[in-house]
């Protein structure tokens, strides 16, 4: 707790953080149609939040069922830590020609991009933790955005019947299969972000929440249903 208080002192935090934080003083829309969703994904060197590093962040913005291609976000990060094993999955090599940013610049651009939008991702908490850890390394507080997890939401679209055994986890691949989404760009951050966006739109269509509040609630249904 102590260290947190110290960090939140105004003079320690850089300007871009204050700009980011200021966006949260605006009133958030209640309607789904007026809410900006940022669908995003990160490629990392591994699954260890403290040890592994972010290699790439990809994100698209969704407003009222529309997604502008040019308004998408894709940055590659230069990192010292590297894991040859995971490189097989994301295909990002250590010395790739793509222009890489240092972590600070990448995060700065990312915060500017997301603003106060709702962050939507598949197993989104992992990506949030990765970002928070990176912010922490730079002496910055955690992300302030609300989040939605498509893996949790997808489960709610499935029938509540004893006939169908629901799995604990559904992978992005399974969602793509189910909704017949092309998996061509699987395992590029922006490609995965787009797949998640398509899946999210299909999920919204099936859940038909009446407003944003209900949508958040749907992620965590009551454990016992009344029969």
């Amino acid at each position: 707790m102590k260290s947190r208080f110290k960090r939140e002192k105004k003079e320690v935090l850089p300007n871009f953080w204050w700009e980011y934080q200021a966006k949260f003083s605006e009133e958030e829309p209640k309607e789904i149609e007026q809410t900006t969703f940022v669908l995003w994904d990160t490629e990392t060197t591994g699954f260890n939040v403290t040890q592994d590093r972010i290699l790439c962040i990809g994100a698209v913005k969704l407003l009222n069922g529309m997604l502008e291609v040019k308004n998408s976000f894709e940055v590659f990060l230069s990192q010292n830590y590297y894991d040859a094993e995971t490189a097989k999955i994301h295909g990002i090599l250590k010395k790739e020609k793509t222009t890489c940013l240092i972590e600070l610049d990448a995060l700065k651009q990312f915060l500017d991009y997301i603003g106060n939008a709702v962050l939507v991702g598949h197993h989104v908490l992992f990506d949030v933790n990765m970002i928070n850890e990176a912010l922490n390394r730079l002496g910055l507080p955690k992300l302030k955005n609300k989040t939605l997890d498509t893996s949790l939401l997808y489960k709610q679209t499935l029938l509540a019947t004893s006939m169908l055994q629901k799995k604990e986890q559904y992978t992005l691949d399974e969602l793509a299969e189910k909704f017949d989404i092309s998996k061509k760009d699987r395992h590029t951050a922006l490609g995965d972000a787009l797949i998640t966006a398509y899946a999210f739109m299909e999920i919204l269509q099936r859940l038909k929440p009446k407003d944003i509040k209900e949508l958040f609630k749907k992620q965590y249904p009551p454990r016992f249903s009344i029969w």
Partner: peptide
Amino acid sequence: LAFEVTILYKP
């Protein structure tokens, strides 16, 4: 041209 495209979802 593709860069200027907006992707739309319609139920």
